[in-house]
Design a protein around this nucleic acid. Sequence first.
RNA 1: GCCGAGGUGGCGGAACUGGCAGACGCGUAUGCCUUAGGAGCAUAUGUCGCAAGGCGUGAGGGUUCAAAUCCCUCCCUCGGCACCA
Length: 805
Amino acid sequence: MKNYEPKQIEKKWQDFWEKNKIYKTNEEPGRPKYYCLDMFPYPSGVGLHVGHFKGYVATDILARMKRMQGYNVLHPMGWDAFGLPAENYAIKTGIHPAITTAKNISNIKIQMETTGLSYDWDREINSTDPAYYKWTQWIFLKLYENGLAYKKLLPINWCPSCKTGLANEEVVEGDCERCGTPTTKKEINQWVLKITDYADRLLMDLDSLDWPDKIKEMQKNWIGRSEGWELVFPLKNEDEKISVFTTRTDTLFGCTYVVLAPEHPLLLSLANKITNYDEVLDYINKAKNKSDRERISEVKDKSGVEVKGITAINPINNQEVKIFVADYVLGHYGTGAVMAVPAHDIRDFDFAKKYALPIIYVIKLKQGESKENEAFTEDGIVFNSNGFDGLSSEEAREKIGQELKKQKLAEKKINYKLRDWVFSRQRYWGEPIPIIHCEKCGMVALEEKDLPLELPQVEKYEPTGTGESPLAAITEWVNVKCPKCGGPAKRETNTMPQWAGSCWYYLRFLDPRNEKELADKNKEKKWMPVDLYVGGAEHAVLHLLYSRFWHKFLFDIGAISTIEPFQKLRNVGLILAPDGQKMSKSKGNTVSPNEIIEEFGADTLRVYEMFMGPFDQAIAWNPQGVKGVFRFLNKTWDLILSLKGNKESSQQIISETNKLVKKVGEDLEKMKFNTCVAFFMEYINLVSERKNEWGIIEIEKMLKIFAPFAPHFCEELWSELDNKNSIALESWPEADSAAIIQENIILVAQVNGKVRDKIEVAMDIDKESALELAQRSEKIKTWLNGKEIKEVIFVPNRIINILTD
RNA sequence: GCCGAGGUGGCGGAACUGGCAGACGCGUAUGCCUUAGGAGCAUAUGUCGCAAGGCGUGAGGGUUCAAAUCCCUCCCUCGGCACCA
């Protein structure tokens, strides 16, 4: 008998699949569609580790199952290949990023093929291919045409190590998301995308998506919608006014001062009225130079300076209040000014304590006294507030707001935390922005016919660090004639961020070679939205937010017909290193799929990754566990080959097989791969004890549903059983519930809620008969011991519980 | 501080809608086979107890005939956000 030798069979089947185009996706209008997508990887030089494959194997299993179930399945793969590692490597070695990228891609593609992933490689795309990024640039031009891309001088997050500006989303606790270097502020002219125009829709449409709550919540918090009022505080003896945004108009009588952000324009326009202007200016400058790090560390200790010479007037009671400048108020949120109510806001309370400012309580608990000596931030009952005393916070918010609105001093307002997306990078390896700056005409967009605007060859990839990209040094590329007036002009030298290409790639898979459109409209209509999208949770407010924004924009301009790209999203949990730490090249604890495939084969790798534990959980790699799966495959292999001649199955086995089909089908839909593998193991344990009852039909059924997990293994056994076609082309077996027989079941017998015996009874036995049988049990008898039965609880086919005194 | 997820054997984890806690796998022990075993096979394996039986799902309380599962109070771990008025 033949031994299970994965090395000898896996290559054979991979070649067979490729040669026969088994996994090519054709447009098959008669079938329901299923678009099953992995987040496409960055082609890193060290290849992918086993963790990357967990998600790929999962989607592969589902794609294979759906194909067998008759779906027209789209399961593509591509490369998100712009990015810093290739560029940094180029800086070190002088080798063009395109060359290293191509090499990395071919390595990783081999890794994917040897793992038996059933991608349709005819649709492979690469975000750095000019034929692809032509359309990334095209979308940029459309954003520009529609006023959603603009250039602005603004202080942005700057990574001194990567020497480029970053988006808000790319800064984690003040540090660069990529390299961990603390960021600084830098004022440079930046391309910005108006994602804030879509804030409301990005928020609302989350409800319609089947996404993990965690990701939805993160996006909600990131967008940060808050409803409130914008109130006007007139200035004493001045025409100017201060507008503030607040969600707590109910606390307005408790406002004892007003705070301006250091960036507030009033501080400049009223400079000559401010009597301590030197002091104020000094504070503003200090605040400007603070890094995010410093700001974060100063949260506890708030600083500020009184702005003397001007006074604000609380519009609700005409009280004069002092004005401060303090950097705990953010210039970019709301109006850049707040009304301070120390009694009912922790930040204002801290500030007021430090500078000995008055604290007036105006909200109290429904019962009992108002709190003193701390900020009471909850809703309650209003007091100390003239005509509004006794109202609830909620009522008072509305009434006070409306009262001021009559005097044109208030207006309802919604604010968002979300900020516009800083879109330009001062680096080489990214999509060039297709804009020309003309001395006469200003900014001129390239025309569609001039796309793609290809990246030029450069000699040095080093970023300049001055806020200019290395492209700026290539004069022959930079200096052009203005397309409008023909005069001297210069190309934009910033490039797009890493996220640009991934914002829309899922659309390109539908129609990857289309030269006229980003994707054919009918194909888009057919395939979108993505039915299942799988990737890591780390993209929650980056890629997943950006691509929703672009998708909605593309919908608005009529390029596509759907309003959301990814209907169902699932996060794959990390595979940690055997030491329980995150796998990383620098720690030297990575596990490569290559070594596992070499020793045990791809099918062991696949089944093990699915068996490790719940799909979305982080679990450490366990080399012993891999061996366990390999043992299971060997055992199954030997068993099936030894039974080649078995014809008939027993009723019991037929029943068990149908149960298996049912359970595996159900749990695959729920993506509970670990329990699916356990079911297979249980099944094999069972049939190996009753080998002679396991016939050909049931063996083949089992192989078919196991094939998505271990495709090479099942193909080989399938052909050993004298089948000529690929098992991948078989149809998925249906669970026959009529065949699931269970004449006798085990009923748990309890006395007073404790398990005392298990009795074998007929399926669907009634309460009386069950009780009679239970009372015959010796064990039950001892426990009843002549006591009077008070009540009997009976759950059909589960439990009988006899209660006595 | 706020938001989200979670806490079950030595380990990864099972457990439908409240109904046998610990499926499946790893590890461990003993035995068999073997020149050999980091191979294979068999048996055992939550815990205390010779046993009968008792105790057990982060802690404490509650509801119920019955709670890992529902309710209340608290503790801890992980992930995210963080002066957003």
